[in-house]
């Protein structure tokens, strides 16, 4: 046995080698790729990326493009509605399932199955259901209500809500499951204590259980928010951004400029803006979640 201390670098060498894919992914793709894209968003790259500086021109052009403004508006409307509605619906459904009901598993299975389906499938089904000539609108008109109008996919003012219906159908099951797990994590004796205190159930939920579930709500919020920014497939399948540009979203803007419009610089600038939006949500959360713990 040598009495010299082994070199630090060679300690756990196998573990380090085994972690090479992770290190490469973290450094080359996540850090490297992000930096590369940000750097190239300041160039005038067109068909091919090139490092010819263009200052903030791409961003200026971006914010002067009507389609980008519409995309951002759509994302804000969709994001806000889907955030609030899926939290409320998800929590209410979870609370209903938590009432020691019969057929709980059946209900949960039904509420969650859309989440197993892709956004493409979701978008196409709802495109069909919302078809003005043969879908829900025509059925209700056929039932005698002649003046009934429900045609969101062809009305540029409300098209984003047509997408929202499909998005909620696909995603609320997940929120419900997360909320249900949160509810099940509440100490049963809290419920007993509130019954002995004579507090009605709705008040217990509102003043005791929901405040106790704050971490679950925050995590869920971050999950929904970071998912909303990525909204892409659903739009492609359900509306292709139409009518006109009225249901465009940032992710689609990026794709179209990068791979169809041969205007890479615009794509990079737009995707950098998306990254910025995500950071605005994630950094405060990470600070609260992990920074807070370090302080005790």
């Amino acid at each position: 046995m040598s009495d010299r201390r082994p070199n630090r670098f060679f300690r756990n060498m196998t573990a380090k080698i085994a972690a090479v894919p992770m290190i490469l992914t973290a450094l080359c793709v996540f850090v490297g790729g992000t930096v590369w894209t940000i750097v190239h968003s300041f160039t005038d790259s067109k068909l091919l990326p090139r490092l010819r500086w263009d200052g903030l021109d791409q961003y200026e052009r971006l914010w002067n493009t009507n389609r980008w403004i519409v995309s951002i508006e759509n994302l804000l409307i969709y994001g806000l509605c889907s955030l609030i509605l899926s939290l409320i619906i998800g929590f209410v459904l979870a609370a209903l399932l938590d009432q020691k009901i019969r057929f709980e598993n059946t209900f949960r299975t039904i509420l969650l199955y859309p989440f197993a389906l892709s956004f493409i499938v979701t978008g196409l089904v709802w495109q069909w259901l919302l078809n003005p000539d043969l879908g829900i609108q025509s059925v209700i008109r056929g039932a005698g209500w002649i003046g009934f109008t429900f045609d969101p996919l062809n009305n540029s003012k409300i098209v984003i809500f047509g997408v929202l219906i499909a998005g909620l159908w696909q995603g609320t099951g997940l929120i419900m499951v997360l909320m249900l797990a949160g509810l099940r994590g509440i100490d049963q004796e809290i419920w007993k204590a509130s019954r002995v205190d004579g507090i009605p159930m709705w008040k217990t939920y509102l003043f005791i259980v929901i405040p106790m579930m704050r971490p679950v709500f925050i995590t869920t919020l971050v999950i929904i928010a970071s998912g909303i920014v990525k909204l892409y497939d659903l739009i492609v399948a359900q509306t292709s951004g139409g009518p006109g540009i009225s249901s465009e979203v940032p992710a689609k803007y990026v794709y179209d400029y990068m791979f169809q419009g041969q205007n890479l610089g615009q794509g990079f600038a737009a995707s950098t803006m998306m990254l910025l939006a995500v950071l605005v949500v994630v950094i405060p959360w990470a600070y609260l979640e992990f920074g807070g713990k370090a302080r005790g």
């Binding site: 004796e189 809290i190 007993k192 204590a193 019954r195 002995v196 004579g198």
Partner: peptide, 17 residues
């Protein structure tokens, strides 16, 4: 109902709000 029985209860996990 528990609240109408004239009892007070103390739990193992304290069950404080």
């Amino acid at each position: 109902e528990p609240s109408d029985r004239g009892i007070g209860m103390v739990f193992q996990s304290y069950a404080l709000y």
